[in-house]
Design a protein around this nucleic acid. Structure first.
Length: 215
DNA sequence: CAAGAGATCATCT
DNA sequence: GATGATCTCTTGA
């Protein structure tokens, strides 16, 4: 793939390996900002810079699916770090997560929004509509545009043959560019609904538009 | 602009 | 039988 160039300085992309994801979930969620999600389908390569994430930190986190125990669905979150966890919400939209921390410990990061890089035309075709900024600014829309579904569930992003993975292209996101808020859509989660576990790049036009802040 | 409803179904009780 | 880690559209101030 092409190297990223910033101020004449070229950076060769590096695919993130298991060690990156096998760390505390909130830290992984923060550091995923600025990394690049790459999705290869038969017809195209789609990619974008991750600009919004949420951490679901373990079985004690009442917003985390795994707080209900190990079931056929949540089993994916118990896999080793770096696996994809994809599920259907509201009978209609898929959500893309990447498993974090060690095998047997259920936690993951929800990828909520990206800023498109490659394959914008294909994304628009998959979505059926939308301007560049409205294509992938939300977990459901992101999966629709990038043609992500349960076929990717429980696959390993760190496998060299993987059709979907995350790479570092040398984009630097300093801590003062990062905003933080409660997670979205988890009002049922008791004490956990207010925990600041949503992370986003401040003032980025591709961050999903919903309560508590784009700034 | 904010608030509310409806779509729609896999998953778990 | 109830419930969502969402999104879009409609209503009303």
């Amino acid at each position: 793939m092409h190297a990223t160039e910033i101020h004449g300085y070229s950076f060769d992309p590096v695919r993130l390996g298991r060690a990156f994801f096998d760390r505390p979930t909130d830290q992984v969620a923060r550091e995923l900002l600025g990394k690049v999600l790459v999705r290869k389908t038969g017809e195209a390569t789609l990619s974008g810079v991750i600009v919004e994430t949420e951490a679901y930190v373990g079985p004690h986190d009442l917003a985390c699916h795994a707080s209900k125990g190990r079931t056929p669905r949540t089993n994916t979150m118990f896999l080793d770090a770096g696996h994809w966890y994809v599920y259907l919400v509201y009978g209609m939209y898929h959500c893309l997560n990447i498993v974090t921390e060690g095998e047997g410990y259920p936690a993951a990061v929800l990828i909520r929004a990206i800023s498109p890089l490659d394959g914008v035309d294909t994304m628009r075709k998959n979505s059926g509509k939308g301007g560049v900024h409205d294509l992938v600014n939300g977990p459901g829309k992101l999966c629709l545009a990038m043609h992500i579904n349960k076929e990717q569930n429980a696959t390993d992003s760190t496998d060299l043959r993987a059709a979907m993975y995350i790479e570092d292209r040398g984009i630097v996101v300093s801590s003062r560019m990062i905003g933080c808020s409660p997670r979205i859509g988890v009002d049922y989660a008791g004490d956990w609904k207010n925990k600041p576990l949503r992370f986003f790049i401040k003032n980025n036009p591709c961050v999903s538009r919903k309560k508590s802040g784009r700034s």
